[in-house]
């Protein structure tokens, strides 16, 4: 867009920059506040003196949290979930997207399959029937209850099939001429060509699995099977649980408070997301996701 070089234009520019800076800062303030609390001495945090900079800097809340066996155990379950769930999601997404990306002439049953899959995005059995199903399959308390129900992310299939469709048709036609079958074309042609799309989808799946908390809460009867997000839900948000057992521990460690320990847990829970965030951003900025969504 063309900028006019008048005085009023310059004032408008300044106001726009100021407004955006303000919005970004306001957006970030809550996170900075909690980060500062997590790094502060308990007496300052409890007294409400900590704003955006730690007072009485200490790492002991973090030390306390990472030494808690429940925290470590649930972190392990989350990592296992992300690895198994992510791989399964990716494999099924690729396998499903390829046939559905074909034109109807090449694959006559395409639209039947598409509807079978897409209908699951529009309608669901709901919470209780899903719970009863998992229970009847004897999957309660098993990590598979967190992985198998969402094994095929239909939305990602749509993203990927749109990406497959944007690849030049001449490629697969030429490969067919040379005698390559569908499996070979998928594996040797489509998968390598869609590496950026697959990377984006994997990152989104990883974030999804890491963040998921509700299924752990309902499908795991005993807290020792909770993934990290479910565990954090019970200790940070569910105010009346677990805080009892925390205050007992705290008599031993006097420089800790409920508030600083919660803040430290919030940050440790968000840390993996913050770590993959730069990669995530690079991918969705370059457009695959928006391109496919908006098509």
């Amino acid at each position: 867009m063309v900028v006019s070089r008048t005085g009023s234009g310059r004032i408008a520019s300044f106001l726009i920059y100021a407004a955006l800076a303000l919005i970004a800062i306001v957006c970030l303030l809550p996170l900075l506040n909690v980060l500062a609390v997590s790094l502060s001495g308990s007496q300052y945090a409890t007294a409400g003196e900590v704003k955006l900079w730690p007072i009485g800097f200490t790492l002991s809340p973090y030390r306390f949290v990472i030494e808690k066996p429940e925290f470590l155990r649930s972190m392990g379950i989350s990592l296992e979930r992300v690895a198994l769930g992510g791989l399964l999601n990716l494999a099924l997404t690729v396998l499903t997207a390829y046939p559905l990306a074909k034109e109807r002439g090449q694959f006559r049953y395409r639209s039947v399959y598409v509807w079978v899959f897409v209908f699951t995005m529009l309608f669901s059995g709901g919470l209780i029937p899903s719970y009863i199903l998992i229970k009847e399959l004897h999957m309660l308390d098993s990590i598979w209850a967190l992985i198998l129900p969402g094994a095929l992310p239909v939305f990602n299939v749509i993203l990927l099939l749109n990406f497959f469709r944007s690849l030049p048709k001449e490629l697969s036609e030429a490969a067919h001429m040379d005698g390559a079958g569908h499996w070979k074309i998928l594996w040797k042609l489509y998968v390598p060509l869609s590496a950026p799309a697959l990377a984006t989808i994997s990152l989104f799946t990883i974030v999804g699995h890491w963040n998921a908390w509700f299924d752990g809460l309902i499908y795991m009867n005993s807290p020792q099977h909770y993934p990290l997000s479910s565990y954090l839900q019970t200790v940070i948000v569910n105010r009346d649980l677990n805080s009892l057992n925390l205050s007992q521990d705290m008599q031993v460690l006097r420089d800790l408070s409920d508030r600083t320990v919660k803040a430290a847990q919030i940050f440790l829970g968000a840390l993996p997301i913050l770590a993959v965030y730069p990669f995530l951003q690079r991918f969705f900025m370059t457009g695959i996701v928006m391109g496919s969504v908006k098509e």
Partner: peptide, 23 residues
């Protein structure tokens, strides 16, 4: 081969998405 590729995803969707609909 296209049907075969769809089979695993289809099975998961039938059990875990359509299963609850029966419920």
């Amino acid at each position: 081969p296209l049907h075969l590729m769809l089979l695993p995803g289809l099975l998961f969707v039938l059990v875990f998405s359509y299963g609850p609909m029966v419920g």
